[in-house]
Design a binder for these strands. Structure first.
Lengths: 133, 133
DNA sequence: ATATTTTTGCAACACTGTCGCAAATATCAT
DNA sequence: ATGATATTTGCGACAGTGTTGCAAAAATAT
């Protein structure tokens, strides 16, 4: 995956800020908040630009917006189009995608129509649980 | 379930505001935000009191805090201690508990420890999908 | 009934996310 | 490449959410 290709695929102007934001998101496998992106992109682009970019990338389906209990939104590149689970570690605070385990057997009651899922498991991640011992 | 009993069970002072907040939460089966509670409790208690009460009820496990994509926290009384799924309707905006369907087969990878889950499905609820036709 | 502890209301605050608008930048056509 | 057009940016301002310190008020304990 490549930032410039994504922008052209989705017919978005190739601006410096957008390229850098996408590169940051492509570089990591944990979800980032606008805040975290801002510190990584110090001086490169404005808060408003980051928010606007995250919003358009989300609406185009390039990234996924994850709601957290701290009510700060975090964003990750979508790797698979399937529903998948996110894992938040209470120790290091990171949010990761758990690929592989898919809650596809969830059956909604009659009359309910699914559009999207937002599955978050909170606990201790592998790295942190190893460090404890 | 009874507001006054809950407060005494959890050794929380029985104040007017807390009783009213709990009664509102017990009365409904959809998740409420602080905002929504405030309008229902017009003049009965302060914003700060509602936030503080919701926080302590959440930490005691009486209610569940649901993170939404709009980054406004919503709260519901916990009916079952099990993991369960919440459903947010994009039409009427309500968030309900879907009891009965439990994603218990979700298997975390080696080394991950589960503490809590936050499963949200976004779509159209039964009532709204019936009204469309 | 009084002393002690807890909670409340208020005001102030930090932070997240949004928006209008003029300036800057990117894209398009030539 | 050059200029015309369209899009995006940065800035400042703003609304809303959630938190906190502190004195007053209310609840609990004695």
């Amino acid at each position: 995956m490549n930032a410039i290709k994504i922008l052209s695929d989705y017919k978005m102007s190739r601006t410096n800020g957008r390229v850098k934001i996408l590169e940051e998101l492509l570089m990591t496998d944990v979800a980032l908040s606008e805040r975290e992106l801002q510190t990584r992109l110090e001086g490169i682009c404005d808060r408003a630009t980051i928010y606007r970019t995250l919003k358009s990338l989300t609406s185009k389906g390039v990234i996924h917006k994850i709601a957290t209990e701290s009510t700060v939104a975090k964003f990750v590149i979508k790797k698979t189009p399937d529903d998948h689970i996110h894992f938040k570690c209470t120790d290091c605070g990171r949010i990761q995608c758990l690929t592989g385990i898919v809650p596809n057997n969830v059956k909604l009651p009659e009359g309910y129509i699914k559009k999207e899922t937002n599955f978050l498991i909170i606990g201790i991640c592998k790295e942190c649980s190893e460090n404890v011992q």
